[in-house]
């Protein structure tokens, strides 16, 4: 198992803020909109540096999505910022009609996704957003894993023409992706080569997959760990190549099982090459108040859950082939 150096502990939303600020300087067509959560989204630096290109919308997310769609008419590249819950479920029809169906070049940037939002509780902990957004035709869905990858993804989506959903989070987590590593939309990132199982992880679960991989290695299990930062379009080639080698799969995401990354991979495998698969995800449940760590443990999103899923899925392969 490859060794991953922890470069620091940072929140992915700060990676977004840093990327947005850099974009402000690089691309004068980039504009930013926020619905009264500028501090939480780390958009202050952009606001301070480029006040003419920053739009404070107030607590009116539906209006924000419409204004963003309108700003594209005239060549602007709008980045909207609010919590993931208010970036998706609350404004789904606005996104569907005014952005996705209208094919507007809007970047929907969503912080505080998933359980790790923590104490605010289930009203704010959206676990359905990946599913909602990946169902929209033409929508690109990205969930980067750490500060550096979130920053790189923020820069990359400005150059992609078309609507994008960029999902990130609130807590400080391990930064381990090298600074300035190029972000290629739709290209899975192979983190560790292995032979016994393929672990496909997205977002905050990528680091947990690495932690799980280290424990598995000590048990003699060689895990291939692949970072699926782009859930849509899915890098089918990378997934199929890995599964051809390992014959079994574990997926890991901070999201409902229904509609998430695991579902996308299961669908692909069912079509192309059926293989045993186990899912580490939230199982048809809302979250609740608590610290991020407590919540990840209670809802089965820890490294231990990945390890157990790997052992289970490998046992299923053995049964099939013995």
């Amino acid at each position: 198992m490859k060794n991953f150096e922890v470069l620091g502990k940072q929140d992915t939303r700060s990676g977004f803020g840093a990327g947005l600020l850099e974009l402000g300087q690089k691309n004068n067509q980039v504009v930013a909109l926020c619905a009264d959560l500028t501090g939480s989204l780390k958009m202050n630096a952009f606001e301070d540096a480029y006040p003419d290109r920053f739009f404070q919308i107030g607590i009116a997310e539906a209006n924000m999505m419409g204004i963003a769609a309108g700003l594209t008419i005239g060549g602007k590249i709008p980045f909207t910022g609010t919590f993931a819950n208010f970036s998706t479920g609350r404004v789904y029809d606005q996104i569907r009609q005014s952005i996705a169906y209208s094919n507007k070049n809007v970047k929907i940037c969503a912080s505080h996704a998933g359980l790790t939002l923590g104490e605010d509780g289930a009203t704010h902990q959206i676990l359905e957003d990946i599913g909602l957004m990946k169902m929209l035709p033409g929508m690109t869905v990205i969930n980067p894993c750490d500060y550096n990858q979130t920053k790189a993804a923020t820069l990359a989506i400005a150059d992609h023409v078309g609507p994008v959903y960029l999902r990130f989070g609130r807590p400080k987590v391990a930064t381990f992706i090298p600074e300035n590593q190029a972000f290629i939309i739709g290209k899975a990132l192979l983190l560790n080569e292995g032979t016994d199982v393929s672990i496909f992880a997205t977002g905050h679960m990528v680091w947990k997959a690495i932690e799980a991989g280290q424990v598995l290695a000590s048990k003699g299990i060689s895990a291939e760990i692949i970072n699926i930062h782009t859930i849509k379009p899915l890098d089918e080639e990378a997934v199929l190549a890995s599964v051809a080698k390992t014959k079994c799969v574990v997926t890991a995401e901070e999201h409902q099982l229904a509609g998430g990354l695991g579902e996308s991979i299961a669908q692909l495998l069912a079509r192309k090459t059926p293989a045993p698969i186990e899912f580490v995800a939230v199982n048809d449940s809302f979250g609740e108040s608590g610290t991020p760590d407590q919540l990840m443990t209670k809802y089965g999103l820890d490294a231990i859950n990945i390890i157990e899923a790997v052992e289970k899925v490998i046992a299923r392969v053995d049964k099939q082939f013995v």
Partner: peptide
């Protein structure tokens, strides 16, 4: 939805 879109276009 159209008024929001029109406002965005006006700001552009």
């Amino acid at each position: 939805q159209g008024l929001s879109v029109a406002i965005g276009a006006a700001q552009a």
